[in-house]
């Protein structure tokens, strides 16, 4: 299975060879790849999604704007989906007592990288991609998330140009927390939908 990342020195050597060849042909500039790697690593982070979720929890009008037009709403927080070649459409869905949302890309690995940073390996695995559309309740239980039988599950397959993010439900007993403290409760898995928060 494709869980093995640990590249041998052979592939490492071949990547270096191809890189040098492309530099020699003028298709890659010297230093360009390092620059792109730095940009990528400095890009999105789950902390961005956590800020959005916390704002949605404390400000119902923001939540409404976020669910109606996420790209416009996140600009209010100084965030955007334009880390790539062009701005991608963001679709935000919010969990309620009645409905739980979970995101996948069954065909490849589409994910809101510009906003949330790189996706975890399990998100890109055939195991997750194959099973979550067919048996989301079982998959969520595997992640330790047991939903009441009355909670409907809605799976979102990122099969085209939009990228999805989930706003988890605000945990009980958090009335006294500041927006920043609330953001600290939100995890990457919560933003994908494989954790409660």
């Amino acid at each position: 299975m494709s869980g093995d990342h640990h590249g041998s020195s052979a592939i490492s050597e071949q990547v270096r060879h191809v890189e040098a060849l492309l530099e020699a042909r003028g298709l890659v500039d010297e230093g360009e790849l390092d620059r792109r790697i730095d940009e990528f690593l400095a890009g999105g982070s789950p902390a961005n999604g956590a800020r959005i979720a916390a704002r949605a929890w404390v400000d119902p009008a923001f939540r409404d704007r976020l669910l109606a037009d996420a790209n416009a709403a996140i600009r209010e927080l100084g965030l955007s989906m334009s880390g790539g070649l062009q701005e991608q459409r963001l679709k935000v869905v919010a969990n309620t007592a009645d409905e739980h949302n979970v995101v996948v890309c069954t065909l490849c690995s589409c994910y809101p990288i510009a906003l949330l940073g790189p996706s975890p390996s399990w998100y890109k695995s055939e195991a997750y991609r194959s099973r979550v559309v067919r048996d989301p309740r079982g998959v969520l239980e595997e992640f330790g998330l047991e939903l009441p039988p009355t909670t409907r599950i809605s799976v979102w397959d990122a099969s085209a140009e939009s990228r999805y993010m989930v706003v988890p439900r605000r945990p009980e007993g958090t009335d006294g927390l500041s927006e920043e403290e609330l953001a600290g409760l939100v995890t990457r898995k919560g933003l994908i939908g494989t954790a409660a928060v």
């Binding site: 590249g7 490492s12 390996s121 055939e126 195991a127 099973r131």
Partner: peptide, 23 residues
């Protein structure tokens, strides 16, 4: 692969790095 059966349990890697090797 959406909807296919037979793939194994989902494995989470705690504190997973963005890249597992420079290449």
């Amino acid at each position: 692969v959406g909807g296919m059966v037979g793939f194994p349990a989902i494995v989470e890697e705690p504190d997973e790095p963005t890249f597992h090797a420079d290449w």
